[in-house]
Amino acid sequence: MKAAEAIVTLASLTRGPRPFSFENREAEEVLNVALALLVELGVAFDRIDRLERLLAERTGISLDDLRATDYDGAAGAERQAARDALMARVLRIALDARVPSDGRG
C-alpha cells in the first residue's frame, strides 16, 4: 500500500464523534493542519541534519564550518529573494486585494 493510501485508510477507519475544544471548530481544524506541518518540519530538519553530516564526512569540512557558512554578495541576494517569495506565497491571503464577504448566505 502506498503512503497516501495508508493515511487515507487510517483516517477512514476512525469511529465515534470528534469533540472539539476551541469555541470555533474551524480554527481548531486549522490548528490540526499547523501541528501536522510542525511534525513534517521536524522530519525535514532531521533530513537536512543528516545531509549536513554526510556532506561533512565526505568533504572533510567540519560540521561547524558547514553550518556557519553564510552567504553574501550575489548568493546572499538570491537567497533573500527566495525568502521573500516564500513569505509571499505563505501569506498570500493577507495580500489578497478583495474585500472579505460572507459566502454562506
Binding site: M1, K2, A3, E5, A6, I7, T9, L10, A11, P19, F20, S21, F22, E28, L31, N32, L35, A36, V39
Partner: peptide, 23 residues
Amino acid sequence: FWSATHRAAQEMIWIAAGEPVFR
C-alpha cells in the same frame, strides 16, 4: 488550547505509527 493540541497529538500518534503498518 492544551485540550485541542493534546487531542490532535493523540490522533497524530496513529497516523505516524499506522502509516508504516498499512504500507
